[in-house]
Design a protein around this nucleic acid. Structure first.
Length: 876
RNA sequence: GGGCGAUUAGCUCAGUUGGUUCAGAGCACCUGCCUUACAAGCAGGGGGUCGUAGGUUCGACUCCUACAUCGCCCACCA
């Protein structure tokens, strides 16, 4: 017998076993003849730190991986990090700024050196943090989206898509982030309602004292106006056909144009047109052949084209315009107004629609198989409600702006020739060859070609992730690809469904000829109890490692999983992790109990223990099947809760209490070994959720060989359970509860003697189980009876009637009252059953087993009523 | 503005092709217990006319319609 403290101390245990698993290479996966099970991690930002979202996400992945491993599959969890170009670049810029440098001063090469240094310094911190959580990744496979194989894969794909005609370059209105000074994709823009002003401004008509009033939220862009537009049918403005108006402040003459785009009911029905700074205006400008006056620099300040406020920030210019218009007497009024403004996802500044030369990827055709294979169920989304969202997006997919005006990332492999044309190639040498072919000039040297300054959108590397981690782009059909691809499950948050999930599916079909994964499990977002998003500024996000230190990794894992049905937001509360920790302690103490018993080989197995073993064996099988079913449907919370109740309620509160020998008495070998084997199975079932404590106890249970681990043991497979055994036992449990309630209610101590008599109708009560009833109720005797039992407290479980005879006098009136209540209830029940059975349409239309069930209910109810009536009679 | 989803106990959620008096679970709550595995515990208990109003059906938490409230996604209304 081991000496074990009554409180579980996880701190040393967790560190110890993680080291052990690593030392014995137990997370390693290489192709073999087993069935593979593979998850590729959503790569966290290389310089990021672990937050609660990662914790949830990776706990779920680890549960799936560990379970698959214990189901005999070759489980492979591929870890890695993402270079996160804009986020990382922003951090490096910030760091340099704090040292007094700025990006453009030090130049591209030097900047990248700093960025790599930063990456090497901070990269991998987050992976170390994942280890604290217990993540069983195959760390030898760790990838980075900018390491050589991944870099070459990205470039190869770009060149390939270009050669196939999917990539083009063009001037477009893009979402411009003036802080990061880069274009953003539509998905990186978050529209937010803001309180702003609507300025009503006079535009005088040329050579006239008449004017037209235009409403705008951005008066500073007046400086770039090239027209005023009204609806062609608008009665108010018919006289303006062919007229010109004077742009305020700059006094430029611009035409009045007519277009149905304008909503005559909004504002004054007149719209100012600034083609350079609004997408709709830009399109109208093209349609009506308007000039484009770009008044903004790339950092959001005004340039010379603006004439006024040159060098001022756009928001300063807005105020200055306001004042100027007022001075000029051109401002009619200013209204409060709520509108939606697009903010950069990364820098949170308002984006600026901006004309610029960018690279685009044609999406429509590429997206088709990705749409089809989700709609036909070849790829499943959990929860399935996301299929609709996915379809909506994919059916309306727009071309993807893939260039970013950043330095940290994959530099676009386009090379410009002296004549301004360009070639696309995987490297400089190839580019030079192509350039020579194209120009026919063999004298061209590397100095004559210049690579595009921009880098690719981060997601342009992430979308290849499930393929590139197996090097399937550079070496299609390599053995690893053949074995692991398509992978099985992807676990991620729904906010990157389009950024990432959809694009991975597209890439899968485009570059690997198959889906990247079969199932997508979308977790919820973690919020606090008040449903607020977790954020640093609110200070409502707990530090994950602190939580682990306080509640153990197992506790945190359980806490997160207990409250996270798929797709629902998680309202995180520290008390959940407390519940997880308590569960660990419960398991610990159950082990302590079993460990404390001494075994007597001469002892025969008591009848109650034999019955309990038989019952729990069946229950275990039934529950294992339920857990499997939950997993098949990605109901991880339910799977855990099922095991939680199995361990806590059924195993600890019932099974152990039944077989438990009296204080300091030995236990028989048969029961002891059966109990240990149950414990062994329970630990294996719980291991995916609580890897550390289960390993610790499994190792304590019996001496193990060096290198042996619970994580590589097979979970037993469920067999069909004998449900009769379980049902019989449920009746005994219910009876025990009732007797305890009587003891409590009547203040009958556990030492006070009671005798129990049972009248069983329709074999409801299995008399063999009387020994269990006796042990758990401390009853002197249990006896079957057919006659009346005077002076006893009575209750019924189904059609079995139990009489508890004690030394206390029974209050006849009280008993009568109870019986009358139960009679009324049962009669009501019978009535509802009879209503159905007497209904010909019910008997004719309902399925036969439903009708049969009703007949059985009627039988039981009638038996019960008869018993109650008899009892009532006896009391008189 | 368009689309999707939700509304069940104080809280977070289950409720599986309409059929056990089926209204459930966990937590929280109430009562009694430091009973020699565990007070991070044990035993017992209370709690909801399933958002509202109609409809279909022998039968509705479950299907249909409208309304209310909330959430998410998409969209160039200045």
């Amino acid at each position: 017998m081991l000496d074990i403290p009554s409180k579980y101390d996880p701190s040393r245990v967790e560190e110890k076993w993680y080291q052990y698993w690593m030392k014995h290479n137990l997370f390693r996966s290489v192709p073999d003849d087993r069935e593979p099970y593979c998850i590729v991690i959503p790569p966290p930002n290389v310089t990021g730190v672990l937050h609660m979202g990662h914790m949830l996400n990776n706990t779920i992945q680890d549960v799936l991986i560990r379970r698959a491993r214990m189901k005999g599959k070759n489980a492979c969890w591929v870890p890695g990090t993402d270079h996160a170009s804009i986020a990382t670049e922003a951090k490096v810029v910030q760091k340099l700024a704090s040292e007094g440098f700025n990006k453009s001063e030090i130049g591209r090469e030097k900047f990248l050196e700093h960025a790599w240094e930063w990456t090497h310094k901070h990269g991998g911190i987050i992976l170390e943090q994942l280890k604290k959580l217990g993540a069983s990744c195959d760390w030898e496979r760790t990838c980075f989206t900018m390491d050589t194989p991944r870099y070459e894969s990205v470039i190869k794909v770009f060149v390939d898509l270009y050669n196939r005609g999917y990539i083009y370059r063009g001037v477009r209105m893009v979402n411009w982030d003036p802080k990061a000074k880069t274009a953003l994709s539509d998905e990186e823009v978050i529209y937010t309602e803001v309180n702003s002003k609507l300025y009503h401004v006079k535009y005088f008509i040329e050579n006239s004292n008449d004017y037209i009033v235009v409403a705008t939220t951005r008066p500073e862009t007046i400086l770039g106006d090239t027209a005023v537009c009204v609806h062609p049918d608008d009665e108010r403005y018919q006289h303006l056909k062919g007229k010109r108006v004077v742009v305020p402040m700059v006094n430029r003459l611009v035409p009045v144009i007519f277009d149905e785009y304008v909503d005559p009911t909004f504002g004054t029905g007149a719209l100012k047109i600034t083609p350079a700074h609004d997408l709709a205006d830009y399109e109208l400008g093209i349609k009506h052949n308007l000039p484009v006056i770009d008044i903004l620099n790339d950092d959001g300040t005004l340039n010379e084209n603006a004439v006024f406020f040159v060098g001022e920030d756009r928001f300063v210019a807005r105020d200055l315009s306001h004042k100027k218009l007022e001075e000029l007497g051109l401002l009619v009024k200013v209204e409060d107004y709520t509108n939606k403004v697009g903010l950069s996802e990364r820098t949170h500044v308002p984006i600026e629609p901006r004309l610029s030369m960018q690279w685009f990827l044609r999406m429509k055709e590429l997206a088709q198989p990705a749409l089809d294979n989700v709609l036909n169920g070849n790829i499943k989304l959990y929860p399935s409600k996301f299929v609709n969202t996915y379809r909506h997006w994919m059916e309306n997919v727009k071309d993807w702006c893939i260039s970013r005006q950043l330095w940290w990332g994959h530099r676009i492999p386009a090379y410009y020739l002296p004549d301004g044309s360009y070639v696309v190639a995987e490297n400089e040498q190839q580019a030079l060859e192509l350039a020579r072919q194209k120009t026919g000039n063999q004298q061209l040297t590397l100095a004559d070609i210049r690579q595009d300054e921009d880098v690719l959108d981060t997601w342009f590397s992430s979308w290849l992730w499930p393929i590139s981690v197996f090097d399937g782009i550079r070496q299609p059909g390599n053995p690893e690809m053949k074995y692991y691809y398509p992978t099985n499950d992807l676990v991620t948050a729904p906010d990157i469904l389009f950024f990432w999930v959809a694009r991975m599916i597209i890439a899968g079909y485009a570059f690997a000829g198959d889906k990247p994964f079969s199932n997508v499990y979308l977790t919820g977002l973690i919020r606090d109890k008040q449903r607020r998003k977790m954020s640093k500024s609110l200070g409502n996000s707990p530090e994950p490692l602190d939580l682990i230190a306080k509640y153990s990794a197992d506790g945190v894992r359980v806490g997160l999983l207990l409250c996270s049905p798929a797709g629902n937001d998680i309202l995180f509360d520290e008390s959940l992790t407390e519940q997880g920790r308590n569960f660990g302690n419960k398991i610990w103490n159950a082990f302590r109990l079993v460990n404390s018993w001494s075994i007597d080989d001469n002892l025969e197995q008591p009848a109650y223990a034999k019955l309990a073993v038989e019952w729990f064996d069946e229950l275990l099988n039934k529950t294992m099947a339920e857990v499997d079913e939950h997993f098949d449907n990605f109901r991880i919370s339910d799977a855990l809760m099922t095991l939680y109740k199995l361990f806590w309620d059924e195993f600890s509160s019932w099974y152990l209490e039944i077989i438990k020998p009296s204080y300091q008495q030995p236990i028989d070998r048969q029961t002891y070994e059966k109990t240990l084997s149950f414990f062994d199975i329970l630990l294996k079932l719980l291991h995916p959720f609580m890897p550390f404590i289960t390993e610790e106890l499994w190792q304590l249970m019996t001496p193990r060989k060096e290198g042996e681990s619970i994580m590589t043991q097979l979970q037993p497979r469920p067999r069909a359970a004998n449900t009769q055994v379980i049902a019989d036992f449920e009746i005994i449990k219910e009876a025990i509860t009732q007797v305890r309630a009587i003891r409590k209610e009547k203040n009958i101590g556990t030492k006070d003697p009671v005798r129990i008599y049972v009248k069983s109708v329709n074999n409801t009560y299995n008399p063999a189980l009387g020994v269990v009833l006796a042990k758990m109720t401390q009853a002197e005797k249990i006896e079957l009876t057919q006659t009346k039992v005077p002076n006893a407290f009575a209750f019924m479980v189904r059609a079995a009637e139990f009489f508890v005879e004690t030394q206390q006098k029974v209050d006849v009136e009280e008993e009568r009252k109870k019986i009358l209540e139960e009679l009324a209830y049962t009669r009501g029940f019978l009535e509802s059953v009879m209503k159905k059975l007497n209904n010909d349409r019910f008997v004719a239309n309902a399925p036969t087993q439903v009708v049969e069930l009703e007949r059985k209910k009627r039988q039981d109810a009638e038996a019960k009523i008869a018993a109650l009536e008899a009892r009532l009679h006896e009391l008189q």
